[in-house]
C-alpha cells in the first residue's frame, strides 16, 4: 500500500473523530486506530490480545450504535468482549432479564460466548431495564451497547 495513502488515511481519521478505521485492498489491509497503543498502521490482519472473544478483522464500524447514543437515557451496559449474545442460560429457559424489569447490581443480564466460554455479564447498577439493544444469537463487538438501565 502506498505510504501517501496511509498518511492520507491518518489525516482523515484525525479530522473525523472516528476511533479506528480499517481498509482492505486486494490482499493488503491496513488498520489505523487512535490512542496510545497500537496507533501504528498494521499491514497484517491480527487479533489484538485483549480478551477471550476478539474476532479477527472485524472492528466497530462508525455506523453501529455507540454507548453515547443512549447515555442520556440511563446507564448503558456494553459488551466487554466480542462474541455471540445469548439472552437465556440455555435454549429452553426464559431470558435472564426482560424489558421493564427492575435490575439489581450483580444480577446476570446475558451471556456472551466465545471460544466455548460463556461469559455471564452482570449489571453494575440498580435500576429499571428500559432497552434491550441486541437479539438472542446476534454477534456483538467489543464496546457495543447491549442494555440501557435507568438507575434508581
Amino acid at each position: 500500500m502506498d505510504i501517501r495513502k496511509v498518511k492520507k488515511l491518518i489525516e482523515l481519521l484525525e479530522e473525523s473523530g472516528i476511533a479506528e478505521i480499517e481498509i482492505h485492498e486486494d490482499k493488503e489491509s491496513v488498520r489505523i486506530s487512535r490512542g496510545s497503543s497500537g496507533a501504528a498502521p498494521q499491514t497484517t490482519i491480527n487479533v489484538p490480545p485483549i480478551d477471550a472473544g476478539v474476532s479477527a478483522n472485524k472492528q466497530i464500524s462508525p455506523s453501529e450504535s455507540k454507548a453515547d447514543d443512549y447515555s442520556d437515557e440511563g446507564e448503558v451496559i456494553t459488551a466487554p468482549m466480542v462474541g455471540i449474545f445469548y439472552t437465556s442460560p440455555s435454549p429452553d429457559q426464559p431470558p435472564f432479564v426482560n424489558k421493564g424489569q427492575n435490575i439489581k447490581t450483580g444480577e446476570v443480564l446475558c451471556i456472551i460466548e466465545a471460544m466455548k466460554i460463556m461469559n455471564q455479564i452482570e449489571s453494575d447498577v440498580n435500576g429499571k431495564l428500559i432497552r434491550v439493544l441486541v437479539e438472542n444469537g446476534d454477534p456483538v463487538e467489543y464496546g457495543q451497547p447491549l442494555f440501557v438501565i435507568d438507575p434508581s
Binding site: I45, N46, V47, A52, S55, A56, V82, G83, A114, P139
Partner: peptide, 16 residues
C-alpha cells in the same frame, strides 16, 4: 489461542 485459518492464501484468525 485464536484459530488460524488460511483462506485463499490469506491467514485469518478467529476467536469465535
Amino acid at each position: 489461542g485464536a484459530l488460524l485459518i488460511s483462506v485463499d492464501g490469506e491467514l485469518l484468525s478467529y476467536n469465535s
